[in-house]
Amino acid sequence: MNQVPLVDYLVLGNQPHLAVNRCTSCGANFFDRRNACAACFGTSFEKADVPTGGVLTAFTIVTFAAPGIDVPFVAGVVDCGGISVRANVINTPPDPEHVSLGMKVRLATYSLGLDDQGTEAVGFGFEPA
């Protein structure tokens, strides 16, 4: 089955992981398409893999969101070996008893479903490790 990632920095395959655009001059990491480096203004980038394990350094449990967005969900920031990643915390109940600052988490993927051409979109989040 054909698969596409939710975002282009999610690399699918046997070992799904995230990949950043790393500035070849100063090493700053970015997830989006780049025009230049925000830190040193360089214009040369290379792909670099992000570790799949990390620590939750900030989170919120969103219970009120824009129409069409399922709530509740846990949004947070995960420190993956010095690279901060924006992600949801998944595969655990979305409440303060099950989600805590400093908890160890690991990357996990899930299906967003098929489109009309039979292609599956795959998203990611972090689950308790």
């Binding site: 939710l6 975002v7 009120f64 947070g76 949801n88 967003l112 990611f124």
Partner: peptide, 17 residues
Amino acid sequence: YGAVANPDGRIGTNTMP
């Protein structure tokens, strides 16, 4: 980000609160 669906709510949140 080459997103195939709205990332808001799936990859963190954009809501101010």
